[in-house]
């Protein structure tokens, strides 16, 4: 699916990011092509979320550059970066608890790049029938699984070309997690590129084209999913 000759959808070059005095990312190169599904792996505290947040401009990198479709967006504000077709499902989900489920979805609605409107309010509710039963509920009254569906649905309302999911199934019961994996499969099949962070490596590897593994703020492995083996998992992920 990935075409290396094409300009990547999102690309990071030599990112160095700090939280105050602590140096988190040590020169990370990372890219995602159109339609590609990438697993971003690594133990806790290795810099996965920081890499995502740096690319989105939420934690601007001190050195290095970020490109969206070849355009340098390193110093752009977050809303401009995400407006170029990127949706983000953060760790902890970021539901607006003071808005109803319906409002959480509607406030995010917009056309994607090139004015495409494939994901409408109606289609999101068809994809997540459970949400349509809870439209007037406050965001905070949902179960963990419903919240994750709402965040993914909200992300889809922006008609993205790339969906970044940080901790896709963290804290969810196995049955609900399976539902989320199925939804991600549907999203992938619709042509949206995805970057997924999750601890369930088994489920991840059946889904992705490519794996990127981070250790201590550096990318130590970045290759096709087939090249991923037990030895690498053992060495870098300590499972």
């Amino acid at each position: 699916m990935s075409d290396v000759t094409k300009t990547p959808l999102l690309e990071a070059k030599g990112l160095h990011t700090y939280y105050g005095a602590s140096h988190i990312l040590h020169g990370v190169d990372f890219k995602v092509g159109a339609g590609e599904t990438v697993a971003l792996m690594g133990r806790n505290g290795m810099g996965k979320s920081t890499l995502i947040r740096s690319m989105l401009g939420l934690v601007p990198p001190r050195e290095g550059s970020v490109f969206v479709r070849g355009q340098n967006v390193t110093r752009s504000p977050t809303h401009k970066i995400t407006r170029s077709g990127i949706a983000y499902v953060p760790e902890g989900r970021g539901i607006f608890p003071n808005l109803s489920v319906k409002e959480n979805l509607l406030m995010a609605a917009r056309a994607g790049t090139g004015g495409k409107r494939e994901w409408t309010y109606e289609r999101v509710l068809e994809t997540f029938p459970r949400l349509s039963e809870r439209l007037s509920n406050g965001g905070a009254q949902l179960s963990g699984g419903e919240q994750q569906m709402l965040t993914i649905g909200r992300a889809l309302m922006t008609n993205p070309d790339l969906l970044i999911l940080d901790e896709a199934t963290e804290g969810l019961a196995p049955l609900i997690a399976r539902e989320i994996w199925n939804i991600i499969r549907t999203i992938r099949a619709s042509g949206i590129a995805t970057v997924i962070v999750d601890k369930n490596y088994g489920a991840l590897l059946t889904l992705v084209n490519r794996c990127a593994v981070m250790v201590k703020g550096q990318l130590v492995f970045d290759d096709l999913a087939e090249k991923m083996n037990d030895e690498i998992v053992q060495k870098y992920l300590g499972v």
């Binding site: 939420l58 504000p77 409002e103």
Partner: peptide, 21 residues
Amino acid sequence: MMIRAGASNNEMVQALGINIK
């Protein structure tokens, strides 16, 4: 809705492509 969302989580509002400023 955006104003109320901004009161609870302004980072997420920006990540949805909304100009919070």
